[in-house]
Design a protein around this nucleic acid. Structure first.
Ligand SMILES: [Mn+2]
Ligand SMILES: [Mn+2]
Ligand SMILES: [Zn+2]
Ligand SMILES: [Zn+2]
Lengths: 127, 127
DNA sequence: TTTGGTACTGCAACATAGTTGCATTAGATT
DNA sequence: AATCTAATGCAACTATGTTGCAGTACCAAA
């Protein structure tokens, strides 16, 4: 399973991710690549990239799917678990490398936490 | 603005929330009430209820919208800011009354945090 | 370098959540 | 009871994401 063949489409998407430090929404990726590939292909390649541990995915506050590069994941080990930050001015999302402590909650067995911090980013703070 | 008229539809939705301690998905509410009201009405009443501080909303891990009762909010003061828990077995969501500390992150002005804890709930833990 | 198996792609059609405009209905107020 | 207008129903729409299938292009083996 996973990315086996290095097709033109796969290489283009890998390229886009290598040039972006921020996360990218699927909607944005489909737009960006609409002259090069079909949207179905975008969705399917992203799925494969995620199962390979190349990227990880999450939903923004509007319920849309985003992807961002993984730093030390493989198809066996997915250890990218960190909060994200979305700017309510420009909509950009960044991965944050901070640890947020999740307390134990009685009666609940917690496996993971999806944390989206919302506010104003660096650029948009500059008035 | 907000809930001005106590219509049959408004009262039915208020009733459903009063009988449920858990959060409710819009999809579920539309299904539950499809013999009593149109789905557009459900969406619009929920919007009004939220702006009145009667309920608060958030998205689940699939990007779908959910609502839950507020405990001490009004149209002026929305202070319901707490994590939620979604059971990956049964899909149910509960509001959690625990505090999770958000650290300061340099270069980001954080206004709020959307936190969804994922795992197994009480009922589903019982094998 | 050709050949062949199959992973991958494009396309069209579909599924589902959520939104909008507008004519009609039914609360509230007098 | 009359009136004003918030609220509703309906139909049509937008957007994101998914599926089946026929055809294409990678890659490895010959
Ligand atoms: Mn990330
Ligand atoms: Mn809640
Ligand atoms: Zn910004
Ligand atoms: Zn459960």
């Amino acid at each position: 399973m996973g990315i086996i063949r290095k097709t033109k489409s796969v290489e283009l998407l890998l390229d886009i991710f290598s040039q972006n430090s921020n996360a990218l929404s699927v909607v944005n990726l489909v737009k960006k690549t609409k002259n090069q590939m079909n949207k179905t292909t975008v969705y399917r390649i992203l799925e494969r990239m995620e199962s390979e541990g190349v990227v990880h995915s999450f939903n923004d506050i509007n319920g849309n799917k985003w992807y961002a590069k993984c730093h030390s994941c493989s198809s066996d080990n997915h250890l990218d678990s960190h909060p994200h930050f979305q700017c309510k001015d420009c909509g950009a999302i960044e991965c944050l490398s901070v640890e947020i402590a999740i307390p134990k909650v009685p009666n609940f067995q917690i496996d993971s936490a999806e944390i989206m911090l919302v506010g104003t980013c660096r650029n948009c703070s500059i008035v």
